Computed example of a mutant assay.
Amino acid sequence: MMTDMPWWLWLLIALGAIVIAALAFIAGRLLSQLKSQNERRDVAIGQRNERLQESIVTIAKSMDQGQCPLSEGALRLVVLLDLRVERGPRAYSERYPALHDMYERIKHMPTHGARKEYPKAEIRKMDDEREGYEKELEDAILADVRQLLKDFN
């Protein structure tokens, strides 16, 4: 019967039950912490994406209204779109091909302070090249910008 078991076997069973209960408690706490951490991460990602969306919409509107050069806007928009965190496939290069085409054509060109390191003749040559791309791709870029504004509003 049960009373025939030695006392040390009862002790082992009791210790096993205590260990299992302790491990279950620890696992529950860790799962709770993980859930909380995931919720905080999701909130942070949502806030970040919101700020990115505001910037994307602002730049796209200024491009559409002619207040921002198409090449500069394309550079900024492609980078901002790439920074968004999304669950599914992004495929922004397929949705906005002209923006990405412009980006690929001019991403090697220096901007801001880096321009000062180049001779003026070389800067003029790059500016002429960039302006040529803007004229060539203007209609397609503006179509992408308008589609982007629809998608993000």
Rank of each mutant, 00 (worst) to 15 (best):
K107P: 02
K125R: 13
R87V: 12
R51S: 14
T58M: 14
H100I: 00
M109F: 13
C68W: 11
S55K: 12
P69Q: 13
L142S: 01
E86C: 04
S62E: 10
W8Q: 12
G113C: 07
R40V: 14
R51A: 14
Q47N: 14
S36H: 13
I141D: 00
E138A: 14
I13L: 13
V43E: 08
L9P: 01
I18E: 03
R41P: 08
I13Q: 04
G66L: 06
T111C: 06
H100S: 04
P119T: 08
E39I: 15
G73D: 04
V85W: 09
Q33R: 15
R124H: 12
D82K: 14
P89W: 05
V79F: 11
A74R: 04
A22L: 09
W8T: 10
A74V: 01
E104A: 15
E129V: 06
W8G: 04
A98K: 01
I106T: 09
W10D: 06
L137P: 03
Q53D: 07
L11G: 11
R146S: 02
K135P: 00
R41I: 15
G73C: 05
E138W: 05
P89Y: 09
Y92G: 03
P119Q: 09
I20D: 02
R115I: 12
A21C: 05
R51H: 11
P110I: 05
W7T: 15
W7P: 14
I45W: 00
R115G: 02
A24N: 04
D127A: 13
D139V: 11
I59L: 07
S55W: 14
L81V: 01
K120A: 15
E129F: 10
G16P: 01
R84C: 03
Q37I: 14
H100C: 05
D127L: 10
G88S: 11
E136Y: 05
R84N: 00
D64M: 10
P110L: 06
F25L: 11
I106H: 02
A24M: 09
M2Y: 12
I56Y: 00
E117M: 15
L12Y: 05
D42V: 08
R40P: 07
P110Y: 06
A140S: 09
A27V: 06
M63W: 08
A14T: 11
R115A: 06
M102K: 02
R41D: 14
M5A: 11
P89D: 07
I56S: 00
K116C: 12
V57Q: 00
E131H: 12
L15N: 00
K61A: 07
Y103C: 05
S36V: 12
S93F: 06
L23V: 09
E50N: 12
A98G: 04
A17N: 03
S93V: 06
E134S: 14
E136A: 12
Q37K: 14
R90T: 08
E54R: 15
R51G: 11
M2R: 14
A14W: 05
R95S: 01
E94A: 11
A44D: 09
Q33Y: 10
E131P: 00
